[in-house]
Design a binder for these strands. Structure first.
Lengths: 219, 219, 219, 219
DNA sequence: TATGAATGAGACTTCATTCAT
DNA sequence: TATGAATGAAGTCTCATTCAT
């Protein structure tokens, strides 16, 4: 029943490459912007890393600023929403819910290239205020809101001791963000043993759950 | 009653300004570099903010890069070492020692302009690897080392439960660094109620001490 | 009768220009450097004289200094070696050989734009010592060596009276160099009748051959 | 009979230094301009070599160009006129007169710092056409005129063979000028044995007198 | 008169962007 | 669509000149 115009399988190679161009450029731009910053990255480098010429880049993005905004919008929000959306309907213990949040945050966001945005946005917020606002709305606030609900649920169910939720959320987030930034740091400038993300997250979880344990729950 | 022949001590105006110039330029450069990044900051802006002309800047720093390095070396290490040095000979409880560490870190470093370096170095590490290394050695490692000793002391004296010290130190530092970064974020891109540093630090301390409380100590 | 499908051989216009660019820029640079000196020549002038914009020059030469060095290496040696190389295998009289040397020196070197290097190198030797050394080795010494052999041949064959060859060579060269320098002098600063190069060279030849005539040969 | 206001001997040291300032500056400027060219010489270097500060230079010369013109006018003409003036009333043989001319030209002009002007004017003629004209009138033409008279005298008295005087004069001058230029060349760019001025001038004289010897005079 | 800090016009150089091919 | 040569605005840096001391 498939018409010949709609083959289910892969399109011919050339066409696929053409389709992929913007994505390859966005990937190249993301990694370079994260590495060197917006201003210090030359469009020619981006084009070269994507395997095209400088002129071609401008066929897909009208300016360097537009490329930057596309990079942010492409990577912001989507990954994180996908990663955390499913946490919403959880039914188990709040401790396990918090564990799951941290686990997903890392596997589906913090360890992906999209995490580079944390550093990028941080450095360029003052130069691109509208982007910074978008990022706040699409990434920061949703994840904070989600964490707030997780904490509140635990407190309400007596699984966590009562704490100031609005203040505790940033304390949970901070090591996650910092972990991402530490990962971006150039390897040859780091002290001898690099941080093991899994171990750090485990320790973070452990400290959090100890810190949140209700007084009454202690033997 | 001062006769005009006895000017108390003021040096001639020009000379006094000359003394002050490098410092004024470094302050201006620090704030602008932190705000906009190294590449996006023009030397003319730095000069203007310091109240001098473009050419004057080059009387004191041979290049924009040299200015940047001077900014980092001027602000790195010194403040932090002064702030934390006195913690070393502490004799009270380890909980109070940890509290003191966090308090000093904020009042004498995190709340000063020098804290902007955290963001700056983060963004420019890849472009100035030698500076990044210096910063690691002069700022990051000393403060980590100090915290390691504080934790170990608490564990040894039975005041803290045994934890992996090497992993816990970054967890204590992360919210401090992140707090600084959040403060740098342009005000008009932030959600409604800005974070109160004092409150956040208090909550951080509380969570930490709960998280470190020995099992045996619980009633 | 050419069909539009068979364009004879012209490469696309852009490409042909690209081929020609370095040469055009070197020619423009040579004439301007000779005219005004290295420091007083602006790269924008060079580009304008070559019919391109400032930026284009930097596509072909990484800096003004590199342009200068390319100008010297492009013009030094090659012309002169080509011009004088064929004198080597000469079989006629030494007087005629000397005549031929002076004739060629002028037609194939002294009267070409490359002769401007004499003045240029003279003025910039202290600022570009390595170039000055190259010029000594590639231009000055070879032509001196050649002249030495011509003189020695004449003396050995009894056609010239014995003279100190090492001292006489510079005396033969000096008027040639000076002639070139006089030609470079701006026309409106010269006294009424400008020097006629051909006549001056003829007189130089005449004086030289009289000066070298053996005593014995006189009637 | 000397009033106390007009002491014949040297004035007090400070005053003499003040008097000498412009001269010291002119000497410093001459040597630096000759060495590096006008544009590549910084006024600060000139001041430093004269032992004063940059500002002081501008008390004596209103601009860098004015300094350059003063350098030229100070050194042009005067030395040469003094050196050659006395040749005018000569009564001996024309050969001896020519010898005397060459001897004086070297000892009283070519070997003095003022000779650097030859190179300087050569390089800057296009940038300072009015100075080039002055130099032509005050230096070049007078010495050419003088040589013309020497040659004509020799021919008229039958001591020299008849030659084209206007063409021969430059041939006599050329080695003198070239000798000066060779002396200016930085030492470390020269071939092994440097030219001995005295020997070269002797050879030049010898070649000239041989070249000018009348046919009739030969045995 | 002498100083040297300060200035700002102008030079070299980079690089985002355009456009003929 | 893709290229890469060409452009020129904008940035860094120099240095002749000024001026308060």
């Amino acid at each position: 029943m498939n018409s010949p115009e709609t083959p289910t399988c892969a399109p011919p190679r050339r066409a696929r490459r053409k389709q992929a161009r913007p994505g390859e450029l966005l990937d190249a731009a993301l990694s370079l912007f994260v590495e060197k910053g917006f201003a210090a990255t030359r469009v020619e480098e981006v084009a070269a890393r994507a395997g095209v010429s400088k002129g071609t880049l401008f066929l897909y993005f009208p300016s360097k600023q537009a490329l930057f905004k596309a990079v942010v919008h492409e990577n912001a929000g989507r990954h994180l929403r996908e990663a955390l959306g499913e946490v919403a309907g959880y039914t188990g213990s709040s401790a396990e819910l918090l564990r799951e949040f941290l686990r997903r945050w890392w596997t589906q966001y913090g360890s992906t290239p999209a995490a580079g945005l944390c550093k990028l946005i941080m450095g360029e917020a003052a130069n691109f205020p509208d982007l910074a606002r978008d990022y706040q709305e699409q990434v920061v606030q949703p994840s904070h809101e989600l964490l707030r609900r997780v904490l509140q649920r635990g407190i309400d169910r007596g699984e966590f001791r009562p704490v100031d939720v609005a203040l505790t959320v940033p304390l949970i987030i901070a090591p996650l963000l910092q972990l991402v930034l530490w990962q971006q740091w150039p390897a040859d400038c780091m002290p001898a043993p690099p941080i093991d993300p899994q171990a750090l997250l485990a320790q973070h979880t452990d400290m959090l759950l100890h810190g949140l344990r209700p007084e009454a729950a202690r033997p």
